[in-house]
Design a protein around this nucleic acid. Sequence first.
DNA 1: ATTGCCGGGGA
DNA 2: TCCCCGGCAAT
Length: 533
Amino acid sequence: MASVLSRRLGKRSLLGARISAPPLLGDGVLMMAQLPPLQTEHVKESPRLASCEDGRFKEPVADSGGQGQNWPLLQPGQKVYVFYKGQEAPGLVEHHDLLSNEVKVLLLEQGFYVCRKAEEVRLANIQALPLPALEMDLGAPATTGYDAVPVAMDHGPTTEAAAAAASGPRSVSRSIDVPKRKSDAAAVEMDEMMAAMVLTSLSCSPVVQSPPNGDAGIPASQAVGDVWKESGDMSDGGSSSTSGHWSCMSTPSPPHSEASPKYSSEAFSSPRPDDGFETDLDPFIFDEPAPRKRKNSVKVMYTCLWPSCGKVLRSIVGIKRHVKTQHLGDGANSDQRKREEDFYYTEMQVKDEAPPEPAAAVSSPTPTSVGASSPITIQQTPSQPEALVLDQAVPPEHHLSSSALSQSAPSSFWHIQADHAYQALPSIQIPVSPHIFTSISWAAATSTIPTLSPVRSRSLSFSEQQPPPPLPPPPPPPVLKSHLIVTSPLRAPSSSRKVRGEAKKCRKVYGIEHRDQWCTACRWKKACQRFLD
DNA sequence: ATTGCCGGGGA
DNA sequence: TCCCCGGCAAT
Ligand SMILES: [Zn+2]
């Protein structure tokens, strides 16, 4: 298999040649089986042929003598063909013994003489006709053809034919020969049909085919399968119902790109003089991205590998945080878990295209888990496999522990002690104390937090809950405004975004593992209310 | 890479 | 309204 594949891929340009050659060879083999019968038909209906089916050595000595009559006399130097080693070999008549009806022939290729019964010798001119004819028959489709055709043939019919051919010369009786020829012809026709089908399939969208798929031959099914696969990546479940709506327009490239990577490329690659045939990748890259790429640039996205979470985020920061906060658990068994989040996300190239929702769960084993209807194609980075493996192996463990501890338990904690600092600025300080206490004990239990104690003391004593932060600074400036205006330009840009106070905020102070201790604002990722700038 | 937090949702 | 979180800018 592999060899076949590689072979095909191997030389695109050569394929043409190869195609013509192999068929020829194959046919050649076939011919041997066929030709004799043919000739015999013409020349005679000798019943005895059965005995000489072998096409070579003649043991039917006795009979041979009896029938030499109707055999034309062969002239020395006349070109003939005889069977030699199972192959028909060209030769020149050296001598024709009418008595024994044997012909001594000089094999051109082998360079020596052999003796053959007259009936085994075929005149060149006679067979010249059939041979070319046959050759044409088979050759035509292949050469004229469509590159795809030969390939298609390769799979089914060809092998069959080959097998037949192989068996033919060996021990096939004449009776079989005749039918065989017929079948062969049939095969040829079939091939042509298949070729046509392949072509159509290639040039058309899967949609067109999938309905009539049933009758479609191998190619069709293959194409469909590929399409499915592709769609599967993206739209998973959704695809089934709407599978049909790939339009010719939208999917011109996808189908053929996938349907028959190499063949298609050959079929349509005329523009591209090929050359380096690398791996499968090559065709893919050229075929697929090129047509559909367009203005879109590959964007790199990050997918969360956590078991049932197929989140896709745009920024590395995003997923990292996502993994950390969502899965690894903010606090809890932070223990010596460091940078683990790196293992829970994977990077992937997305043929971006302003998709409304780029979400796509590729890694998830279940096709139904997460899906994106958009036809974007996602390519896993090479590292993916590893990540996946890890995902499989490691996560469960953590999942249990971390999720159990940090996800469920802590979360409840947070809720309980939630302080409404964020929007309820005027809130009083009391709530803090209790909550801190609880958190402390909890923290202590889990692990000692270096920063916590100092910070906590500070925040606690200092002011756990800032009263509504007075806004003196702004108000005063009325007059200074003019001044400020001057500086405003410089500061203008910052207007949109705060300058970011230098003060450490809850996040930093308590650490992500103790989110429960953050002020509400911080928890909500709003401007910190506790440590204002 | 990390932190701060805006803007945009979901319930 | 509460709450969450992606993404982005500043560190
Ligand atoms: Zn805060």
